[in-house]
Design a binder for these strands. Structure first.
Length: 323
RNA sequence: GGGGGAGUCGCAUAGUGGCAAUUGCAACAGACUGUAAAUCUGUCCGGGAAUCCGUUCGGUGGUUCGAGUCCACCUUCCCCCA
């Protein structure tokens, strides 16, 4: 036993100055990274040796109707480790970050009773953030209110939204991205729903969680990542993405289907472009998505960045319960 | 061989005498507390934080105070007739 710990001390790559035994109790290990970085496989390997489970933080793998196009874990992968939040809802369901945060925290409470560590992996920055730092509680917005705000946007455009928000919540208006209709709309929805300014619900506080969080980001050199993305898109087509998209086509107006890999094929079905062009668009849009993910990761200094050549030893370090 | 059309900042596109030059895409950087694989912003000929400076619109000459825009020749490409 003594020897083993000495060996770990000597060989664990990050352990020299800050050696600590990590998996003492209640640690959430976050494995992030841009799309196609290899998160799924990494997380599964880790889950197997740690004998724990995986919580997906991928806002599109939630939907049971979307498998191929979201690169959701395969049946085989799902067999290798217990996954949560993969295909657990339908594209017809209403589900947002707040729902997710609540579900995850509740589940973690249970899981930590029997597991020292739980893995979370996925590429949705906001969702990971909500779990790690919390998100302010806000009342639900009724569908009629959302429609009302949407109508305001349709009728009066961005200006209409800007004017309304400036009137109802000048504080927030001063800090929002005033060019972004989505931001304006959301704030207005809450204002109309609650008759209070949106900003009155924003505490800016970071939630205190009763578990440790260790964050890792799997990163690739740009060119390599592009090649991986291109290859994976081709593979999705081979695996039948066309059929999957075709089946979903009638529901294409659902928000869940405003998603890379589907919307481009819908355009093709509509005769807007050739299949070849659609596939090329999917590749391009996926790269752009990966880029946005990188922006998210870069601004969070809590991440430990792992390059491909270090995937293996990081994995084994984690597998040994060190960090 | 004859006739017609066209070469603009990575690609595509606007511009017909005052333009460093339109728009779209791509690219790069960024924002983002409930639509987030969504949505939005900035940059995008070179130099500069910037007023600005320097070099541009296939090539070479020319006309003009001034040319991407007009003229001549050259060159490349496309279409039609042979």
């Amino acid at each position: 036993m003594k020897n083993e710990s000495e060996a770990q001390h000597r060989f664990a790559p990050f352990s020299i100055p800050n050696y600590n035994r990590l998996m003492k109790k209640n640690t959430l290990i976050v494995i992030a990274g841009p799309t196609a970085s290899g998160k799924t496989a990494f997380a599964i390997e880790l889950a197997k040796t740690l004998d724990t489970v995986i919580l997906s933080a991928d806002s599109r793998q939630f939907y049971k109707e979307m498998s191929i196009g979201t690169a959701a874990p395969t049946v085989e992968e799902l067999r290798q480790a217990k996954h949560y939040f993969v295909h657990h809802i339908s594209i017809e369901d209403k589900y947002d970050v707040a729902d997710y945060e609540q579900d995850v925290i509740q589940l973690l409470d249970e899981l930590f009773k029997t597991h020292d560590a739980v893995i979370m992996t996925g590429g949705s920055g906001l969702f990971i953030d909500a779990v790690c730092n919390g998100i302010d509680a806000m009342p639900d917005v009724q569908p009629e209110i959302r429609e009302k705000v949407e109508k305001l946007y349709q009728d009066k455009g961005l200006h209409g939204l800007q004017e309304a928000l400036q009137r109802l919540d000048p504080d927030y208006y001063a800090t929002v991205d005033q060019q972004n209709p989505r931001r304006l709309q959301r704030a207005l929805e809450v204002c109309y729903q609650t008759r209070k300014p949106f900003s009155s619900f924003r505490s800016g506080n970071t939630a205190k969680r009763d578990f440790d969080i260790k964050k890792y980001a799997l990163l690739w050199d740009r060119q390599q990542l592009i090649e991986r993305i291109d290859k994976r898109v081709d593979m999705m087509i081979e695996q039948g993405l066309l059929e999957e998209a075709k089946a979903l086509y009638p529901k294409r107006h659902l928000n869940a289907l405003n998603t890379v890999g589907y919307k481009e094929l819908f355009a093709y079905f509509d005769g807007g472009c050739s299949l070849k062009e659609a596939v090329e668009q999917i590749k391009i849009h996926t790269r752009q998505y990966a880029k946005r993910q990188m922006t998210w990761l870069r601004k969070d200094i809590g991440y430990r960045w792992i390059m491909p050549e270090n995937f293996d030893n990081t994995l084994s370090t984690l597998q040994q319960g060190l960090a």
